[in-house]
């Protein structure tokens, strides 16, 4: 199986989709410069650099999508999406519904985010929850090159607008990419590691931190299950509930601000639908309610690391929910004890 960095897997997916469908075009801040091989293969009309003006880049993607094309717009860094919020949220997300279903917006908005480069809070802000909260949009954040390629292919083929977030810290991390080019349907989580004692649910780079934590927990005899959500909307609720019911102990992990982050939705979902299976309260690990600093140690401190994740899991496995009421009969809980 060939090995590629995530950034190259994105380029591969773009080339494959542009080859397959001539309605796919790509434009954005330096995409024709940085991915010049696409210009060579597909021409300067289908691969374009743009002004550094996120509003019109996103707006042009929305208009082109409604007009029958499948644009991929590269907006560089996620905080720049603030300039594109109107076009993505008010137009792409709403005009299908508000027009009574007359229009579709098959577009992908690409942006980088996350710790790793020390670029500071105006280039590193994990804003995925904003878009999850916006009707009509889908949100994807892959954790490895193979998923990035397969999810981007699905996002390009999707008839809805997709905000596709790339974790800066993973961009140049290599990973195996299969030779087949099958898209992964949006809304399908993956089980990175199976386990029965505690569930670690995450996405993006913290999936790897969860996997490291699971490794050290295994050495202590704790079998942790690691779930990579991959797409945040649609959210794989079935996979979340299945793992919660299986282990009864859940740690939700993400780099984004914990306050009103995606983890809050996951914790609430579990509380509403799998409460009877829980042996302990759900724990959320996330970034602080603070702009991300540039200084490397401070930046790293905003990200839940493997040690903290393992510590949280260990604590959950050591404690038991005091039973203040008779145990409920609930056949949905896989391991009632």
């Amino acid at each position: 199986m060939p090995t590629l960095p995530l950034n190259d897997a994105i380029g591969l997916a773009l080339a494959e989709e542009m080859r397959r469908d001539n309605k796919v075009i790509a434009f954005g801040e330096g995409i024709a410069t940085k991915r010049h091989e696409l210009v060579t293969e597909f021409g300067a009309l289908r691969v374009r650099n743009t002004p550094l003006a996120e509003g019109i880049i996103a707006g042009t993607a929305v208009g082109a999508a409604a007009g029958g094309l499948r644009p991929v717009a590269d907006l560089l860094f996620a905080p720049f999406l603030c300039y594109a919020m109107d076009e993505l949220v008010n137009s792409a997300g709403k005009l299908r519904y508000m027009s009574g279903g007359q229009f579709s917006f098959p577009l992908v908005a690409l942006a980088m985010t996350g710790a790793g480069w020390g670029v500071g809070a105006q280039h590193n802000h994990n804003v995925e929850a904003w878009f999850v909260h916006s009707p009509g949009l889908k949100v994807v954040m892959p954790s490895n090159p193979a998923d990035a390629r397969a999810l981007l292919k699905a996002a390009i083929r999707d008839d809805n607008p997709v905000v596709f977030l790339l974790d800066i810290g993973l961009l140049y991390q290599p990973g195996e990419v299969p030779t087949d080019a099958v898209p992964i349907p949006l809304g399908q989580a993956s089980t990175v590691r199976a386990g029965t004692d505690v569930s670690l649910i995450s996405y993006g780079k913290t999936v790897h931190h969860c996997a490291q934590a699971a490794e050290s927990l295994a050495a202590e005899g704790i079998a942790a299950e690691v779930i990579d959500l991959r797409s945040l909307k649609p959210l794989d609720e079935a996979a979340i509930l299945a793992t919660a019911r299986k282990t009864g102990r859940v740690v939700v992990v993400h780099e984004a601000n914990r306050l009103c982050g995606v983890g809050a939705e996951i914790a609430a979902l579990i509380a509403e639908q799998a409460f009877a299976c829980l042996k302990t309260p759900v724990v959320r690990l996330g970034g602080p309610d603070a702009p991300v600093p540039s200084s490397f140690p401070l930046e790293q401190a905003t990200v839940p690391q493997a040690d903290a994740i393992a510590a949280a899991a260990r604590q959950l496995c050591a404690s038991h929910r005091p039973l203040t009421y008779p145990p409920m009969e609930n056949s949905k809980c896989a391991l009632p004890h």
Binding site: I56, G59, T60, V62, G63, D86, N90, S91, L95
Partner: peptide, 22 residues
């Protein structure tokens, strides 16, 4: 693509024209 965000129609027009052209 009628929009009531003042200026919204201006942000969408180039894309619609790009789709026409391409």
């Amino acid at each position: 693509l009628t929009t009531t965000i003042v200026g919204g129609e201006l942000s969408l027009a180039p894309g619609v024209a790009l789709a026409q052209t391409m």
